[in-house]
Design a protein around this nucleic acid. Structure first.
Length: 882
RNA sequence: GGGCGGUUAGCUCAGUGGUAGAGCACUUCGUUCACACCGAAGGGGUCACAGGUUCAAAUCCUGUACCGCCCACCA
């Protein structure tokens, strides 16, 4: 296409510089990603003299494809990496994936079910093999998508939590902790997921309330002296009741404690015990005790040394303990038992009741508390050093409020059930001798050596996924070997994650890092916002409210998507995603593209000098001064994880200052060979600095444009360039303020034109001004489209206004609608008088004058004076048209 | 039950003591030789509510309402 170009003599030519008028993201993105990768820019700089910045990314699960949350999370890390790289650090961002035990296993189980088979049918070995196949297929999708987002991660150092080396590290930790007594076996009531048939931890469950029934049952005393009434939401568990408990202070039962009761249906005798647990104010004050199926009941059972029969099996069906009800599903059993109780006269009453239930996050199934043998980790012991470290400021949270939430949780931390009854994961390295003694060892042979006895079996359970991901910041770097990477990159710099896994993951990394490395795993934890739909709903595939980031990238580009999400990232806890905002971001890309294209069309390469020209005009100084300020703002914002402020500053500088004013002002000078060198230099300086500062957010378009810049001392890539150094000598406070006033006056003159319906941008022959324009008359006349700007006030009839102390006059003929004009002037005066009255009132208040800061009072006085002078002028102007 | 966040223009959000801001949307005007994915000029807000502190409150304090999130063993 034909594009105008200026030659050495300043004559215009049409020349094809190959840049279309619209930025085409699809052309640019893959091209530059590949170029960076080939140039090895994703690997850390080996220079040992450079400061190090490292991140081990939260490994995405291998269970599907990326969603909008990922499209924020990973570019955010990429942003920090790119920023630190520009600032001169050696940057490592280490990617990887998590085997995600329960999640992955249930995905594959679902597939098998569709094929008419199951894990149980395949057997352990074949099933695990099948999951590995799935990992190969699905794992790459996610990596491909991270590339499309522009993430400059070091793929050569990629890790997977089930890789041989990583797995060995996991086992070593288990063995170490077992030998140190930090891991132990115990019988506890755990959360049992009857669908996945495994235990899950408290934080993998969700609490809900559902409409249900509260059933009151009569338990007769064995001696025939009447009965006691208990209330329960789970009548079926009565089959395994071993006692009824009342509070020791409860007068109703004081003389009954110690008596025996007859358990209805089972006709078994159980004692009435006194315990602190029951609340006398609730129901009848008496609680049935089923130790194997309720954590509280279990505690009572332990205190009173009661038996603990297990009534439900791994699928939540009634066991042999349930006598004639054996084999029934728990809900079926409930119906039958209530019916039988009624028939036999034990049912007191049934009330509607809001039942609190616990649901498994993974399967959605109601969790059954179940007494079983599990492996536990002594978290309270591990937590101590962390609490101190966070309090001492070794690890910082952003936003800060999460620090307190985290500490509160750490201070109330409990045992961690680390065993899962799954196949996909790290099998617990415990071996049992014939007499059942557990030995922790890397393998069978070592276990026998360690035990000095014959080993008969290995523990079947695998470890909770978070046990392995807790090692992520150092196991990925080669631990337990003292590798070069480990020495160089640990502790890592920043951890960026979702607030939902602070306790699940962040806490574990901290505990494991401090215990095993003796040092924090990272110095900053940044919690980013949850991405919601445009109307504030949760994004979810099943609800159909999810937006696929890849579709957005296809149509609007990765940079636009990144900008959309990153420019809304501050310390907010939610973020609403709307495609319209991505369209705005795409428009911003296009603006950047075209402004740069304009500069390139107006730059003669030979005229580009590395050092600033001597003859800077006020507008040049203004722009450089704004650039100076913008650089500081952006740097500080990036440093404080306040990405939205960085984006805002960059947007405003580029669109509102560089494009709206500087480029427009400079056009006349750029068209004149005698004056164009200075604005050329200023433009290139500003654009180069802007592209660098924008690069962490929008890496592709900035790289593309940087490659076009005809400047000296360029790097091969913008990505590997240096952060702009804007000398303090570019700060021109006085010129800056003066130019701002000239712009204000310009806007005033444009508005004055509009008030008499003068079409914008159509030149008018003459306008007058009174006051000091600091020599920037040219700016006013060109930007308010005036052919001739004269000083003074003409004798002929004019419309006038006063802006920033400058009087403006446009001569008018007879064509002006005087009524409209007068009405407008009247409105202005009314508004002004109103403000004036308010301000006057304030200044007349002696307390204000006395107590307010003197500079405030002085400023208000000046404002008042200005208002008065404007009012006088307005009145004169109104009189003129009467 | 406890804790945390939010409530500012039609929409999405900035704004931590000194005359209410941005982007989008809207109205009017305009294709000017970077860009109509553009430019110019406008309209639009008792800053959720009620008290309090202060010369001065969107901003600080107390309380209330609504929305969202997290934590919690009441059968």
């Amino acid at each position: 296409m034909a594009i105008p170009f200026h030659d050495m003599e300043g004559r215009r030519h049409n020349m094809d510089n190959g840049m279309p008028t619209r930025y085409d993201a699809s052309q640019s993105e893959a091209k530059w990603y590949e170029a960076w990768e080939q140039a090895g820019l994703f690997q850390p700089d080996p220079d040992p003299g450079k400061p190090v910045y490292s991140i081990t990314i939260p490994p995405p699960n291998i269970t599907g494809s990326l969603h909008m949350g990922h499209a924020l999370c990973y570019p955010l890390q990429d942003l920090l990496g790119r920023y630190r790289r520009l600032r001169g650090d050696s940057v490592l961002i280490l990617p990887g994936q998590d085997h995600a035990g329960i999640a992955t296993q249930s995905v594959v189980e679902k597939q098998l079910r569709k094929e008419g088979t199951s894990g149980a049918q395949l057997g352990r070995e074949a099933f695990v093999e099948r999951v590995w196949e799935w990992r190969k297929d699905s794992g790459d999708t996610i990596l491909q998508q991270l590339r499309r987002l522009g993430c400059a991660f070091d793929w050569s150092r990629q890790r997977f939590t089930l890789d041989d080396k990583y797995a060995e590290a996991v086992l070593k930790v288990f063995i170490d902790w077992f030998d140190r007594g930090l891991i132990f076996r115990g019988k506890r009531v755990v959360n049992w997921d009857p669908v996945l048939q495994t235990s899950v931890s408290d934080i993998e469950t969700e609490r809900k309330t559902v409409k249900g029934k509260l059933t009151y049952i009569r338990y007769p005393y064995a001696d025939g002296s009447g009965h006691i009434v208990i209330a329960t939401t789970r009548p079926e568990t009565m089959l395994a009741d071993v006692a009824v408990a009342v509070h020791p202070s409860d007068e109703r039962y004081k003389d009954k404690v110690g008596k025996m009761l007859i358990l209805p249906l089972m006709k078994r005798e159980i004692p009435l015990v006194a315990d602190m647990y029951p609340d006398p104010a609730f129901g009848s004050g008496a609680v049935k005790i089923t130790p194997a199926h309720d954590a509280n009941d279990y505690q009572v059972g332990v205190r009173h040394n009661l038996p603990m029969p297990v009534l439900l099996d791994e699928r939540a069906r009634i066991t042999e303990e349930g006598g004639i009800y054996a084999g029934l599903d728990r809900l079926e059993a409930r119906k039958r038992i209530v019916a039988d109780l009624e028939e036999q006269g034990f049912l007191e009453k049934i009330e509607d009741y809001e039942i609190p239930i616990v649901v498994s996050e993974r399967s959605g199934e109601v969790i059954e508390p179940l007494l079983s043998e599990q492996w536990f980790c002594d978290q309270p012991k591990l937590a101590e050093p962390i609490i101190n470290a966070v309090k001492n400021g070794e690890v910082h949270f952003h936003p800060e409020r999460y620090e307190r939430i985290f500490l509160e949780w750490m201070e109330n931390i409990r045992e961690w059930c680390v065993s899962r009854q799954l196949w996909w994961g790290h099998r617990i390295p415990i071996y049992f001798t014939e007499d059942g003694t557990p030995v922790a060892a890397l393998n069978w042979e070592e276990a026998e050596k360690k035990a000095g006895a014959k080993i008969v079996r290995q523990e079947d359970d695998v470890l909770d996924t978070w046990f392995s991901s807790g090692l992520w910041p150092f196991a990925t770097l080669g631990w337990p070997e003292q590798t070069e990477d480990l020495k160089r990159f640990y502790p890592t710099s920043t951890l960026i994650t979702d607030r939902n896994i602070i306790n699940l993951w962040v806490a574990r990394m901290m505990m494991m890092g401090y215990d095993l490395m003796g040092e924090k795993p990272f110095s900053d934890v940044m919690i980013y916002a949850t991405v919601l739909t445009h109307d504030g709903k949760r994004m979810s595939k099943s609800l159909g409210t999810g937006v696929d980031p890849m579709t957005i990238i296809d149509t609007l580009g990765a940079d636009a998507l990144r900008y959309t999400l990153l420019s809304q990232t501050g310390d907010n806890q939610d973020l609403r995603y709307s495609e319209r905002r991505t369209e705005d971001a795409r428009n911003f890309c296009n603006k950047i593209w075209n402004a740069t294209r304009f500069v390139l069309m107006n730059v003669v390469p030979s005229s580009v000098k590395a050092s600033p020209p001597a003859n800077l005009e006020a507008s040049d100084k203004w722009l450089l001064s704004r650039l100076h300020l913008t650089e500081r703002k952006v740097r500080e914002a990036y440093d404080n994880y306040d990405i939205q402020s960085a984006c805002q500053a960059l947007f405003h500088f580029f669109w509102g200052e560089l494009c709206d004013w500087y480029i427009e002002i400079s056009k006349p000078r750029l068209n004149d060979p005698a004056t164009r060198e200075t604005p050329q230099w200023v433009l290139l300086t500003a654009i180069e600095a802007f592209l660098k500062m924008m690069h962490p957010v929008m890496p592709h378009i900035t790289e593309e444009l940087y490659q076009h810049l005809p400047i000296e001392g360029k790097s091969d890539f913008l990505m590997s360039a240096d952060w702009p150094r804007i000398a303090d000598s570019f700060s021109f406070e006085e010129e800056e303020a003066q130019m701002e006033r000239v712009f204000e006056v310009t806007r005033g003159l444009r508005a004055l034109r509009a008030s008499i319906d003068l079409t914008p941008m159509k030149p008018i022959p003459v306008a007058y001004y009174q006051g000091d324009l600091y020599g920037a008359e040219q700016v006013l006349s060109s930007q308010a489209w005036v052919q001739e700007l004269r000083q003074g006030k003409p004798a002929e009839r004019t419309v006038s206004s006063t802006v920033a102390g400058i009087d403006l006059h446009i001569p008018i003929g007879d064509l002006v609608d005087l009524d409209k004009l007068n009405s407008n002037l009247g409105k202005d005066l009314a508004k002004l008088s109103d403000e004036h009255a308010k301000l006057k009132l304030r200044l007349d208040n002696p307390q204000f004058v006395e107590r307010a800061k003197p500079e405030i009072v002085e400023r208000e006085r000046a404002t008042l004076e200005d208002m008065e002078s404007r009012m006088t002028k307005l009145k004169e102007r109104i009189d003129l048209f009467k």
